[in-house]
């Protein structure tokens, strides 16, 4: 039964997810952290970091992670099929009947505003995550450095994730001794 629940829950997230992978964040916080308590905010951040370093779509990676955690390998597969199912239906219908969908004036107008809304929703999510993860000076330093490096250089995020993992180990060990 929980397999069906996983499928349906991620199908709901997939169908409400406007604006790409990052738009999943407010939905994950609401549905999975808040309502169902399947994962914590920290775990979502871990999944996102790993998703940045591995191939594939972030939303798919996150679904696989959450499903795997709840119900093993089958859970991972059901959650992933759930998150892609709405895309299959919606895109197929549009491709078959509404090829000029993206050119319709009302669609363009609606989406220009939806994109603004998605930014506001994600900003709220990021503030919430920041309050949880940036609690001391070393964490704040890592945040500022990675943010600056991502915005100012073309280096791969994989590098930043590995470097910050190393920093985490060094900081914790230095602290334990001092």
């Amino acid at each position: 039964m929980e397999l069906v629940e996983l499928f349906l829950c991620f199908a709901k997230i997939g169908s409400l997810m406007f604006g790409g992978g990052l738009a999943m964040l407010p939905l994950l916080q609401r549905e999975l952290v808040g309502r169902k308590k399947w994962v914590t905010e920290e775990e979502i951040l871990d999944y996102y970091a790993i998703g940045q370093c591995t191939p594939g779509i972030i939303a798919v990676n996150t679904a696989t992670f959450v499903g795997r955690k709840r119900k093993g390998v089958l859970g991972g597969i059901f959650a992933t099929l759930g998150v892609v199912f709405p895309s299959l239906v919606i895109i197929t219908i549009i491709a078959a009947f509404l090829a000029n969908f993206a050119d319709l004036v009302f669609v363009k107008n609606a989406f220009a505003a939806i994109r603004v809304c998605v930014c506001a929703l994600i900003l709220n999510s990021v503030i919430k995550l920041g309050k949880k993860t940036i609690k001391d000076v070393p964490a704040a330093v890592i945040f500022v450095l990675v943010l600056a490096a991502t915005l100012l250089t073309d280096l791969s995020p994989v590098l930043f994730v590995l470097a910050s993992a190393l920093c985490g180990i060094v900081i914790k060990n230095v602290r334990a001794r001092g």
Binding site: L22, D46, Y48, A49, Q52, I122, A139, V146, P157
Partner: peptide, 30 residues
């Protein structure tokens, strides 16, 4: 122990990566 310590460093970095992606999104949308 080491995996736990690594994630202590990764979480603020992950928040930073999401923030950077959001800034890109805001530049386009706003």
């Amino acid at each position: 122990k080491y995996v736990d310590q690594a994630f202590y460093g990764i979480r603020p970095a992950s928040t930073a990566l999401i923030t950077a992606a959001l800034i890109g999104l805001m530049a386009i949308s706003l």
